[in-house]
């Protein structure tokens, strides 16, 4: 059954990725002016211009252009960056590992710390811890990421000089960005974990477990957690996309290389082949993230498999 679910879920990716790629493809055509003017360097010779028109097939119908564009993408040809004068594929290959490292660490950090904090706040009876968690969750879900990043730089990098201000040299440069993205993620995961645990705690079977004398820690880890983790996995899966979104901002502030900062810089310089390449990669990552999340959820809960196939 699970394989059947995965099959249909992967099948769903085809129309989804098709529509997204069409939107991203259309960017250069919806911009004011001739598409070629958005794709060519200022001061190019008429010969270059003609060559580029043939390369992108700009003299052909839109549908054909799209097919050529997406076909080239599949072969790893993302076009040529206008400002940086290098193949976009190289730029992406160079920046992707940084984004993956940052995103992966931030994701792991928010999941682990979030689940621990959520569990503590659901099991404690202390009012102070309770209030602290409420405040933390409120701050974590409202404070703008880029401002938090700036504050982190001001405090930890400029005042205390514990970490480098910017750049990507080594592990110490990863600490502040991961903490910045993780802050929001931890708050979210902690809240969901807390609510889920409190919900399960009210079930009759938990009272039975207490009545038969099982130690609380065994009830927590053996019985409460498996139930409570399902909504947590759901939210974490959705969060993969949001962590990428947060990474875009944070990479830019910390001046780290990565898909996000590449994208923002390209948007500012109107370097559209790079913009298209980055957006496509980020969209792909979001889709893969939700796919993994959905499959993990279906693997954990048979009801979801039944309902969706």
């Amino acid at each position: 059954m699970l394989w059947r679910y995965i099959f249909f879920r992967v099948l769903m990716l085809i129309p989804v990725s098709f529509s997204i790629s069409v939107v991203i493809f259309m960017i250069v055509h919806l911009l004011p002016g001739d598409p070629i003017d958005n794709l060519i360097r200022v001061g190019s010779s008429p010969d270059d211009r003609a060559a580029l028109i043939t390369k992108y097939g700009l003299d052909q119908p839109l549908a054909i252009q799209y097919l050529r564009w997406i076909g080239a993408m599949f072969q790893g040809d993302f076009g040529e960056a206008i400002v940086l004068r290098r193949p976009v594929a190289d730029l992406i290959a160079q920046n992707l590992p940084y984004s993956l490292a940052l995103g992966g660490l931030a994701f792991a950090f928010s999941s682990i710390v979030g689940i621990i904090l959520g569990t503590i706040s659901a099991t404690t009876r202390s009012k102070i811890v309770e209030q602290f968690m409420r405040g933390f969750i409120l701050l974590g879900s409202t404070v703008p990421g880029f401002w938090l990043a700036l504050l982190m730089i001001l405090f930890f990098a400029v005042q205390l000089q514990w970490f480098p201000v910017s750049g990507a040299g080594g592990w110490s440069a990863l600490v502040l960005p991961v903490l910045t993205i993780g802050f929001g993620g931890v708050a979210l995961v902690a809240r969901v974990t807390r609510v889920a645990l409190l919900d399960v705690k009210r079930e009759d079977f938990v009272m039975l477990l207490h009545a038969k004398g099982l130690p609380s820690y065994k009830i927590l880890f053996g019985h409460l957690m498996p139930h409570a983790l399902l909504p947590v996995v759901t939210i974490l899966a959705l969060r993969i996309g949001w962590i990428l979104g947060g990474a875009v901002t944070v990479e830019f502030v910390f001046g780290r290389p990565g898909l996000g900062s590449l994208l923002i810089r390209a948007l500012g310089q109107r370097d559209y082949p790079v913009v298209q390449g980055c957006l496509l990669m980020l969209a792909l990552a979001v889709m893969l993230g939700t796919l993994i999340g959905d499959v993990a959820q279906a693997a954990m809960d048979p009801r979801i498999r039944e309902a969706k196939t």
């Binding site: 990428l244 947060g246 923002i264 948007l267 957006l279 969209a283």
Partner: peptide, 24 residues
């Protein structure tokens, strides 16, 4: 279907796609 599709995307990414189309 369209709504669920955009739902999974971070707001900043949707906004950036849009800014890419009509400019800053």
């Amino acid at each position: 279907t369209v709504v669920d599709l955009t739902w999974s995307f971070p707001d900043i990414l949707i906004a950036l796609i849009f800014v890419a189309i009509i400019g800053p």
